[in-house]
Design a binder for these strands. Structure first.
Length: 236
DNA sequence: CAACCGATCACCT
DNA sequence: GGTGATCGGTTGC
């Protein structure tokens, strides 16, 4: 990485455009690793209304995407799109670059980003972020003690795992399902700061029973914010 | 530290 | 009525 690249990284993060998401989920997954998920919460939800802010959002939280899984659509038995279009999964069949958020196990939300051109299903599950901004807001959303955030374990607990990630950024089905992630004024966008990494980890997907052997989980190798215990090699 | 279990709800059969 | 792209606490070796 050159010094020029680093300067770009710091000062000119770019919005990721819709066309980025139009391809095959496996390709988009690999490209999405290292990008930044940015969450802005509108002033309407401000906790301390007495404090006026010149900014259009009361807080900003962001994390680098370090772990994802690809779901391939109607031909993938593990995918929500497998049974074909239903009311629940209709976002997956819509245009690329939209959030597909669903409620699971009665307790958690999971966030995906739709891929493929309109009419074809396919998506990417966001499994873990490395927090890079707004950690205190994330800790509050997670009911964690912000005082402990100097501890690497506490920082990892913020957004490692798909359910935790959604809780940290206050992502819910009600608020976010179907929302585009490529619009400049959205409260949920993906950005590219030019970050590059050297090695990618590829393993089977987590927590599924069908098509459980396909190597469709992608992570930044060695990154300490990847969920689970194995951050290096594949299990047979 | 791995294995297990309960929580708790939307969806589909 | 069964199941699930999870999490975190407890159990037991």
């Amino acid at each position: 990485m050159s010094a020029g690249r680093i300067a770009t990284t710091l000062y000119h993060p770019k919005l990721v455009l819709q066309e980025f998401f139009a391809g095959d989920p496996r390709d988009v997954s690999r490209a999405l690793l290292g990008k930044i998920l940015v969450r802005r919460r509108p002033l309407d939800n401000l906790d301390c209304k007495s404090h006026s802010s010149p900014f259009p959002f009361d807080w900003l939280a962001a994390g680098r995407i370090v772990e994802v899984e690809a779901y391939l659509g109607e031909n993938d038995p593990a995918a929500h799109a497998y049974p074909g279009r239903t009311p629940r999964n209709s976002v997956l069949f819509g245009p690329p670059g939209h959030a597909y958020v669903y409620f699971i196990y009665g307790t958690h939300f999971c966030m995906n980003i739709s891929c493929m051109p309109e009419g074809e299903a396919g998506c990417i599950l966001l499994r873990a972020l490395e927090p890079i901004m707004g950690e205190c807001a994330m800790a509050k959303a997670r009911h964690q003690d912000a005082q402990q955030l100097s501890n690497i374990r506490a920082r990892k607990a913020l957004a490692s795992g798909p359910g935790n990630l959604c809780q940290a950024l206050a992502i819910s089905r009600e608020r976010d399902n179907g929302k585009p992630v490529y619009e400049a004024h959205s409260d949920l966008v993906v950005m590219d700061d030019g970050f590059v990494f050297s090695e990618m980890l590829v393993t089977p997907r987590v927590g599924i029973t069908k098509a459980a052997d396909l190597p469709l989980r992608y992570a930044i190798a060695g990154n300490p914010f990847v969920s689970g215990k194995r951050t290096r090699m594949n299990a047979p």
